[in-house]
């Protein structure tokens, strides 16, 4: 798996160069303001952790980077050039791959079809060119094996896999196609301790291969293990933005839990 990351990583990446820069980015859905004035920089070879409670705007933030929803305020730059993604395709074409919280798989389709959905291998470039099914099956199979996922049959519908297995397929797919930036939306939420460990190892491996990683989570422990930079969102606003050297796990945990609010709650519940 780490081999895959290194193989597919864009070799021109230099650690520290900003890949994605967001400045004053906001998003309104009609009258609802989901995100406001967020600055975020994704540097090559660094993991940027975005933390926050439910409804803090984490998912909105990554939907902007991955092209699912265009931003309504501020600027987003990729490699220094301003972009306004109209569709996820445009984001993918810039080497930005995302593992969505809902995994973005089609339950009734085979595992290998899901793996290559939207980026199919074809035997030619003309519109009706046939798919290279054998190659896709083989690659999907070997990529999953590298990740330690053994599906009974690569041709079985992905809906028949367990939640954790589906998660791993989604991650394997993003790692395979994401050459520059990897966005992980709550990748450890549905996983057990062991599988979470595997995911964190890949996150670190992607960072070491020079990719810019955005790691979204509400688990400060997981974040602190891999993160270089931490951003906490609350109700669509940024409440903390610190480098690893400037913040400890305790501070992060306290801030995540609401700091002052938590102290008050502890006091209230004192027995």
């Amino acid at each position: 798996m780490t081999d895959t990351i290194i193989e597919h990583a864009d070799h021109s990446l230099e650690v520290g160069t900003p890949l994605v820069e967001m400045e004053g980015v906001g998003k309104t859905y009609g009258a609802i303001r989901a995100l406001e004035g967020v600055n975020l920089t994704v540097n090559a070879g660094e993991v940027t952790c975005v933390l926050g409670d439910n409804g803090a705007g984490k998912s909105t933030l990554i939907k902007i980077i991955s092209g699912l929803h265009p931003h309504t305020e501020g600027t987003v730059k990729v490699d220094g050039a301003e972009v306004h993604f109209g569709s996820p395709r445009e984001s993918l074409d810039q080497g930005i791959a995302t593992v969505y919280q809902d995994l973005a798989v089609v339950g009734l389709m085979e595992v290998w079809r899901n793996f290559f959905l939207g980026s199919e291998i074809r035997k030619g470039r003309w519109p009706g060119a046939p798919l290279d099914i054998a190659a896709m099956r083989e690659i999907a199979d070997s990529e999953l094996k590298k990740m330690g996922i053994f599906v009974k049959d690569i041709n079985q519908p992905i809906g028949t896999l367990s939640g954790g297995q589906r998660q791993c397929v989604a991650i394997a797919r993003a790692v395979y196609f994401g050459a520059r930036v990897l966005i992980l939306d709550e990748p450890t939420a549905a996983l057990g301790v062991k599988q979470s460990g595997v995911v964190l190892k890949y996150t670190a491996a992607a960072r070491d291969a020079g990719l810019g990683v955005v790691f979204i989570t509400h688990n400060p422990h997981h974040a602190y293990m891999v993160g270089d930079h931490f951003i906490i969102l609350k109700l669509g606003r940024r409440v903390l933005d610190k480098k690893r050297s400037e913040v400890s796990l305790e501070q992060l945990t306290a801030e995540m839990a609401g700091g002052q609010e938590l102290a008050e709650l502890a006091h209230e519940l004192k027995r």
């Binding site: 991955s66 395709r89 973005a104 339950g107 959905l117 798919l131």
Partner: peptide, 28 residues
């Protein structure tokens, strides 16, 4: 042949099976 052997067919199954997921991975 289109359904089972081409990219278009893959996309037809995908938009019917889960439109949002299909869009998220770049299917038009």
């Amino acid at each position: 042949w289109i359904l089972l052997r081409t990219r278009t067919g893959n996309w037809i199954f995908a938009v019917g099976g889960n439109q949002d997921s299909a869009r998220a991975v770049g299917v038009p």
